[in-house]
Amino acid sequence: MLVTTPLDPGWETQATPVWASLDAFLAEVGPRAFRFAEAGLRHRDDALDAVQDAMMKMLAYRERPAGEWTPLFWSILRRRIIDLQRRARFRLRWLRPAGDMVDADDASIDWADPGVGPAQAHEQREAYARLVQALRALPARQREAFTLRVFEELDVATTARAMGCSEGSVKTHLSRARQALQSQLEDVR
């Protein structure tokens, strides 16, 4: 069900989903949050941990209005991903011998529709793998802006709140991400 509610005083009203409970919200956002975390962390188990941690932290906010849950959840998840990235860089810096580079790309999740034929499923997996690779090549802020605006379909104001930056910064990061992805994925269209 959609209702129109003001997000903050002075902001325009917009249609925001209202969930029956926080559990319903988390169930709906879970798969998308996992894909977002996996693109940022490049490791399935770390992505699962980040999403689970963000969901656990959301329990403290269950009394907040449902309209606040979306930017709050994405902000919590984003901060958790950044924390995990910093820890991984720190560990890698101290544990890896100089010059030793290990391929960080793990097997991607197969999001292909099981009802399609083998050739089409293969093409979808390849296209998805190229998209994930292109997203991983983007700077973190551009990747976040693109994922939240395009995949999650959040508006600019909500994305800005989730990312902790201005609306203009969101638009700039999104524009740069689109240009970079377009040049990297021209042959996939």
Rank of each mutant, 00 (worst) to 15 (best):
R143F: 10
A66Y: 09
A162I: 03
Q52G: 13
R93Y: 14
L48G: 09
A50G: 02
R80M: 02
L2Y: 11
R86F: 04
H43N: 10
E126D: 12
R176W: 05
F25G: 03
L148E: 03
A119S: 12
E126R: 15
K171S: 07
L72M: 10
R93V: 03
L41G: 00
E144M: 15
R32V: 00
L154D: 05
L174S: 02
D83S: 09
M101Q: 05
R79H: 14
K57T: 04
Q124C: 01
M56P: 01
Q120V: 07
R32N: 02
A107C: 06
L77N: 06
D83Y: 11
S183H: 10
Q124L: 12
D105G: 02
G117N: 15
R149C: 01
A160E: 03
D103E: 06
T147Y: 09
T159P: 04
M101I: 08
L95T: 06
A107G: 06
I76P: 00
T172K: 11
A15D: 14
F36W: 15
A157I: 04
R161P: 00
L59R: 15
D105A: 13
Q124P: 00
I76E: 03
F34M: 12
D155S: 12
W74T: 02
E68Y: 13
E28N: 05
E126P: 00
E126V: 09
A177Y: 11
V150C: 11
D113W: 09
Q142P: 02
L77G: 00
L174K: 02
R130G: 08
V188N: 02
R89W: 11
A20R: 15
H43V: 03
L77W: 08
L84V: 07
V3R: 14
G30H: 15
W94Y: 10
T147E: 06
F73C: 04
D155I: 06
G164P: 06
L181Q: 11
L84N: 05
R136F: 01
M58T: 08
D8G: 00
H122K: 14
G40A: 14
E63P: 04
C165W: 09
R86E: 00
F90C: 01
H173G: 01
E167C: 12
F146S: 02
A157D: 10
R125N: 14
P65V: 10
W111S: 03
P97T: 08
L59I: 03
G99R: 11
W74G: 00
R80A: 03
A157G: 09
A134F: 03
R125C: 09
A137L: 06
A39W: 13
D49M: 05
Q142N: 06
S166C: 07
A134I: 05
A27G: 07
A112S: 15
R79I: 00
G99W: 10
L154N: 05
A162K: 04
A121C: 03
F146E: 00
H43C: 07
A157V: 12
I109T: 12
E68T: 08
Q85D: 02
P97W: 06
R93D: 11
Q133A: 13
R149D: 01
D45H: 04
F25Q: 06
A24K: 12
I81M: 15
A24L: 14
V188Y: 04
W74E: 00
